[in-house]
Computed example of a mutant assay.
Amino acid sequence: MKSMTKIVSIAGLIVLASGQFAAARPDLRRMTCLEARHMVQRNGSVVFTTGPYTFSRYVSDRRFCDRGQAAFPQLGPTRDNPKCLVGLECRQPLFSN
């Protein structure tokens, strides 16, 4: 019976920890456009919650992209602007030079 209690306790800790990590991701929809931009500029790269089941990574410049990726303007839904230019998105360029 002790091992079952131990398993339940460990499972509870995992659920608790996963909830804390999810809560730590800032919700873009609750921020103003300016607040979100400043957060990206200050941190270089931020993963924001963008909807009930979605998230997106925004970067301040190409230095935060992988080799071969380019940085493109990325809009996001903020409290005061549904199409705020929050930062940049790293992705493969359509055509390589």
Rank of each mutant, 00 (worst) to 15 (best):
M1T: 15
S3V: 08
S3Y: 07
K6M: 04
S9D: 06
S9V: 15
G12L: 15
L13D: 00
L13I: 11
V15T: 09
A17F: 14
A17S: 13
A17W: 07
A17L: 15
S18M: 11
G19M: 10
G19Q: 10
Q20K: 08
Q20N: 10
Q20T: 12
F21C: 00
F21W: 04
A23E: 11
A23S: 13
A24Y: 05
A24P: 01
P26Y: 00
D27I: 11
D27W: 06
L28H: 02
R30W: 01
M31N: 04
C33E: 06
L34M: 08
L34F: 05
L34Q: 13
A36Q: 05
A36P: 07
A36L: 08
H38S: 11
H38N: 13
H38A: 10
M39S: 09
M39P: 02
V40C: 09
V40L: 10
Q41A: 11
Q41C: 00
Q41H: 03
G44Y: 10
G44W: 12
V46W: 06
V47Y: 03
V47M: 07
F48Q: 01
T49G: 09
T49W: 04
T50N: 02
T50E: 02
T50F: 01
G51E: 03
P52I: 01
P52L: 04
Y53A: 14
Y53G: 06
T54W: 02
R57F: 01
R57T: 14
Y58Q: 01
V59F: 05
D61S: 14
R62Y: 05
C65R: 06
D66L: 14
D66S: 14
D66N: 13
Q69V: 12
Q69N: 13
A71G: 04
P73F: 05
P73A: 11
P73V: 13
P73T: 13
L75D: 10
G76E: 06
P77D: 06
P77A: 11
T78Y: 04
T78A: 14
R79N: 01
R79T: 00
R79F: 03
D80K: 12
N81T: 00
P82D: 04
P82G: 03
C84M: 11
L85N: 11
L88W: 06
L88F: 12
L88G: 09
L88S: 08
E89I: 07
E89A: 15
E89N: 12
Q92D: 15
Q92E: 15
L94F: 00
L94R: 03
F95Y: 14
F95H: 14
F95S: 13
S96R: 12
N97L: 10
N97V: 13
